[in-house]
Design a protein around this nucleic acid. Structure first.
Lengths: 231, 231, 231, 231
DNA sequence: TATGAATGAGGGTTCATTCAT
DNA sequence: AATGAATGAACCCTCATTCAT
């Protein structure tokens, strides 16, 4: 169908998408603030600046609206994980990309990250089996990266890949959820860098005081700061 | 007043406590299954095998019943944290005790842990300022252990104590919440041991393959890191 | 049945009456404070210092307890009205006795008067046909006094006796209900006298400035104060 | 915005007002019949011929609906009292206007008058401090009229203005509440005239047989009291 | 598309009453 | 006579969803 022949169609479709996006954003914000259960359809409509009857024109019901949000999250995450696993990165870079995805999404769409963590990642409440499947898939894909790291001797093998995955994602999520809890935004890319490095550092090198470094420091004047470059 | 003289009194009091406990358990189970919001007082009553109104004989309202559960959790956790900070333990032992508390509570009362994680730790929905205070207190107490570790040079100091705390608790929580999510129970103390050690190992020594150590081992220089095997 | 033979019976009966009276008083107080609907049986029991199950030992149910209160009021009022109509009083004295009964009962049992006014006299809410009968009877008995006054040419006849009755009782009740409203007690017999006289004065002589008196004053040096003696 | 261009707008607004009025009437009727406490929101909805939830579309809750009724009453009464105090009337005319307001409102909206008397004027049960303020204001405004009468020597000064106010309003209210109680409607303006005159007559001139007047009439001396017939 | 009036199932809570002890 | 645990019907209110306009 030619756009030239039916310019209104395109505009109409675009308008539809626009309005859908407006509702989507409103839902994101409202659900973040109140949680899925306490967020009322009328709250979302008011936030979107439309009548609440109209929400049902674009989304069948509240659950569907919720799933639309989740799908956006999953689409993004699965896209990233696909890029990562297909791309030519070493394991550390892959993990860093995953961390970056969480942090960057939190920067650009903090509500989405919040909803993922509070309503899905840590809640059995809204967990339909359909939604659980997505969750398990994301776990499995991340685990593949971890397992690859073990295979390539970048990650220790004396702990199950699944356990390492729990800890890796746990560190990322806790960081984000605590920032959400205290309503702290990531201030600029510099802070993002620092957080990403910290997570990766602790996960990869551990929290233990690296006495080895001190020795090397003594021997090679390597300062603890230089150590950070390793991350 | 002698118990011998008033045996019924004692039984009555005991019966009262018993019934309260029955309702408490039912609430634990129901809230775990459905979440606080979807858990109906009638569900809890049915689960407890009592009439609807009787729940209100023992608990003022749903919110109070919820707080009773949370208080039990916080009482246990704060008790443990007090024991830990007062006790004569090194930092690693202290962290291990904290991990053990989570794991053991999950073994004995998985619902309690689940409710803590899903409804409080990762949700702003039910977070009254009163409840947030408890949460912050637990963070601060754990951070004190972490900070002590930094002071004693057991933990790295180039990352803020608060950040390390997030990661430590995050790892523990993710472990537990994922087990909750897939409804996996801890099978015996052996598995508990393995999980606790894994968490501690990764947190303290990092997930990275410790090539440095191997070298130093080869060279015959026993680095402190080599005692990793003890974990 | 001889009291000597069954002394305990008497004591038991007396005790029963005592406990009944305690509950009665508690009901009076509670219903006055909260109104019949908002007064809970448990409130009454707590006020009486007994368990709430016991209330049902002495009164079948809440309605019966309420009726017991009303009956006490009606018994007193009908007793007074009987005394008044049988006694050798002129109409003014009879009306004065009625006023006194209200005021004195308000002095000794303000709650009873309050309940009568708020729950019965001015409320269709609690009015069963059975209760309405009592109300009508009291109206009719008072009207008889008024009608007698008209017959004896003490009261004007150009207004229906029933209308005069409304106004007479209306003045009394408004006085009392307003005192109840502002929680004002009658301070001593002197104030009671003044109120009783005021009501009677206005009812009998009217609120209008008594210019006639001024004339008589002029003629006979009768002061306005002396006019009060007429009431 | 032209009404011609948007006729539906006007109709919609009108419809909204209509429905609100329907609910208002239903509430009036139901509360009159059952009292505020026993009146159920479902009763009101059924009486209005609408669904349960719709009541909450127009009124926030039961209290608000109740207050809407009271406000209508107070608005009318305060409007009348303002007119009266500003208008060029003598005191008797002012009192007559007040009486008329009660009687006419009872004719046109008997339920409103009933609710005022039973739920507010004579009941502490529903009396919030906010509502008590209105009540006191109406007392004060009426007292001002009475006090003016005393100042102009139309009303006796040996009784406190407040006491006279109690008696005046008491007479009016008792009349109305008793009519409500026996479900008696005012039959036509003639009866209204008679009642109004009776109340005013008794309040101003008293219930006593006016022998004095007759004498003065006989003597040919037209006293002010003789114009009583005008009442 | 767009509105918001209309519906009604269902939830938390109250409390009169019963009953086992 | 006395207790208070136990019951459950009813109430107020919420809010997702439908539908007439």
């Amino acid at each position: 169908m030619s756009v030239l022949l039916h310019p209104m169609r395109k505009n109409a479709a675009a308008a539809k998408k626009d309005k859908e996006a407006v509702i989507f954003r409103a839902a994101l914000k409202t659900i973040t603030e109140k949680g899925f259960h306490k967020a009322r359809m009328s709250d979302i409509a008011r936030e979107a600046g439309i009548s609440y009857g109209l929400v049902y024109h674009y989304f069948n019901n509240k659950e569907d609206l919720f799933d639309a949000i989740l799908n956006r999250w999953w689409d993004g995450l699965f896209g990233l994980l696909a890029d990562v696993s297909e791309g030519d990165y070493d394991v550390r870079q892959k993990l860093r990309h995953i961390i970056d995805y969480f942090l960057e999404t939190y920067q650009s769409e903090p509500e989405m990250v919040n909803i993922f963590i509070t309503e899905i990642s840590r809640s059995t409440t809204n967990l339909t089996s359909h939604r659980l499947d997505y969750f398990k898939k994301s776990m499995t894909l991340t685990e593949a990266v971890i397992a690859e790291g073990q295979k390539r001797k970048v990650l220790r093998t004396d702990i199950k890949a699944r356990y390492l995955t729990y800890m890796f994602l746990g560190a990322v999520e806790t960081f984000l959820s605590t920032m959400v809890l205290v309503d702290q935004k990531i201030k600029g890319d510099a802070q993002k860098e620092r957080i990403a490095k910290s997570i990766l550092k602790v996960f990869l090198n551990g929290a233990k005081e690296q006495k080895i470094n001190k020795k090397s420091e003594i021997r090679g004047r390597k300062s603890p700061v230089s150590d950070m470059k390793l991350c």
